[in-house]
Amino acid sequence: MSRAAALEMRNVVKEYPGFPPVRALDDVSVRIDHGELIAVVGPSGSGKSTLLNVMGTLDRPTSGVVSIDGNDTATLSDKQVAGVRARRIGFVFQQFFLLDGMSAIDNVANGLIYQGVGLNERRERSAETLKRVGLGHRLTHPPSHMSGGERQRVAVARALVHEPAFVLADEPTGNLDSKSTGAVMDLIAGLHEEGTTIAVITHDTKIAASLPRQVTVFDGRIESDTALQSSYT
């Protein structure tokens, strides 16, 4: 299969201006293929968040290449990069970021709104996706009436509804108790089996160890990548 990587970063540097400038990412190269489930792990302050932002095109690198589905984002305008996010990237956040004023189904439908998909199709696809994450019975509930685990599943559905090239999950279990954590991680494993590409950013080494591939970040550099080790040995 000659399909391009879901995400490829080559020699990415991210510096924040100052005296001296802060180098948050230092020559980072990583490749995530379609269908992979990887953990990006590292202590706080390691550059994990910056890596997430650059991977998700929320922030642009100072230098280096970030390409998504084979498309170099450096050459795209802000508007086009927003289009890339709308179509190819799904985000799951630690704080869920669900809107309380609307039902679960409309929250999920927000994942399609910036693609210009019509309302009826948005709702249809959202209902299907909610069923996929096991919330088919709570379509019209507002998130404020849901448990933390259920909320995160709504957020996962929102990240999946537009069938992105990959899902970026930033500490998806950070606000959950151990039972809900297990449920959400099981959901992620299930989605991986169905072929979804997922990167889980976490500081929890136990969660990281449960995933097929671990990329460890430290001081803005990739300290280790289990995929590369296995190919070397």
Partner: peptide
């Protein structure tokens, strides 16, 4: 990749109304 993001006019209204409605 150059397909920019797009918000329908009817959705501008819907999104704009979501805050006051909530």
């Amino acid at each position: 990749p150059t397909l920019a993001s797009r918000l329908r006019p009817s959705d501008v209204l819907r999104v704009g109304a979501s805050g006051p409605r909530a």
